[in-house]
Amino acid sequence: TYTWNTKEEAKQAFKELLKEKRVPSNASWEQAMKMIINDPRYSALAKLSEKKQAFNAYKVQTE
């Protein structure tokens, strides 16, 4: 089980997950979700809006 003390740690864990699963920077949210949804870190960020925000930040960083 994973635990995160801060929102920032949770966001980092979520981005690490995207990186580890090699989600391409041109992937849509739907494509990315299919690649990461079974990992416990997918739940790091509770709100869908937070997940999408972190995903978009990840995409910008990896382009």
Rank of each mutant, 00 (worst) to 15 (best):
L48V: 08
L48T: 09
E16P: 00
A27F: 11
A44S: 08
K47G: 11
K19Q: 15
E30I: 09
K34Y: 10
P24D: 06
E63R: 07
R41K: 04
L45G: 00
R22C: 11
M33S: 09
E63L: 11
S25A: 13
M33R: 14
K52Q: 11
Y58V: 02
K7M: 06
N38M: 10
M35K: 05
A54E: 10
Q31R: 07
K7V: 10
E20A: 07
Y42R: 00
E63V: 13
K52R: 09
E30G: 08
P40K: 07
L45H: 02
K52H: 11
Q61R: 06
A32P: 00
F14Q: 00
Y2N: 15
E20Y: 05
F55C: 04
Y58C: 03
P40Q: 06
N38I: 06
A10K: 08
F55S: 02
K51I: 04
M33F: 05
T62F: 13
L18Y: 01
P40V: 11
E63G: 12
E20F: 06
K7Y: 10
L17E: 00
L48Q: 11
V60I: 12
K15A: 15
K19F: 15
T3N: 11
F14C: 02
D39E: 04
K59H: 04
E63P: 10
M35A: 07
K47N: 12
T62Q: 14
Q53V: 07
L48A: 07
N38H: 14
N5R: 06
P40Y: 13
Y58N: 03
T1F: 12
E9R: 02
P40D: 08
R41T: 06
V23F: 02
K51L: 05
T6S: 08
Q31T: 11
T62L: 15
A57V: 08
M33V: 14
L17H: 00
N38P: 04
L18P: 00
W29S: 00
Y42C: 03
W4D: 11
E9V: 04
A32Q: 02
Q53I: 09
V60M: 13
D39G: 00
K15F: 15
W29H: 01
I36D: 00
R22S: 10
M33H: 10
A10C: 08
A57E: 15
T3I: 11
N5K: 11
E50P: 01
T62C: 11
E50C: 05
R41A: 04
W4K: 07
T6W: 04
K52A: 03
E50H: 06
K11H: 15
D39Q: 00
K11G: 09
V23I: 07
K11Y: 15
E16T: 09
E9A: 05
Y2K: 15
K19V: 15
Y42T: 01
M35P: 00
R41D: 01
N26K: 07
S43K: 14
R41V: 03
W4N: 08
W4R: 04
E9F: 03
K21Q: 07
A44T: 04
I36W: 01
F55K: 01
Q61G: 11
N56K: 12
P24R: 04
Q53A: 11
N56E: 15
A13Q: 06
N38T: 11
M35F: 06
K7R: 07
A13K: 05
E63S: 14
A57W: 10
K52W: 05
T3S: 09
K47M: 09
A13L: 08
K51E: 01
N26Q: 09
K47A: 12
K15M: 15
K21C: 08
F55R: 02
P40G: 06
L45T: 01
Q61T: 10
P24N: 04
K15H: 15
S43Q: 14
S28N: 11
K51D: 01
W29F: 10
D39L: 01
S43P: 06
L18G: 01
E8S: 09
E9D: 08
L18C: 05
S25L: 15
K52D: 02
K21S: 10
A54F: 05
K11V: 15
E30F: 11
K59I: 14
A57Y: 08
E16V: 05
K34S: 15
A46T: 14
E8Y: 07
K52G: 02
K21M: 10
E16Q: 09
T3F: 10
E50Q: 06
E20V: 05
A46N: 14
L17R: 00
K59E: 03
N26H: 07
A10P: 04
A27N: 03
A27D: 03
K15C: 15
K19N: 13
N38V: 06
N26T: 11
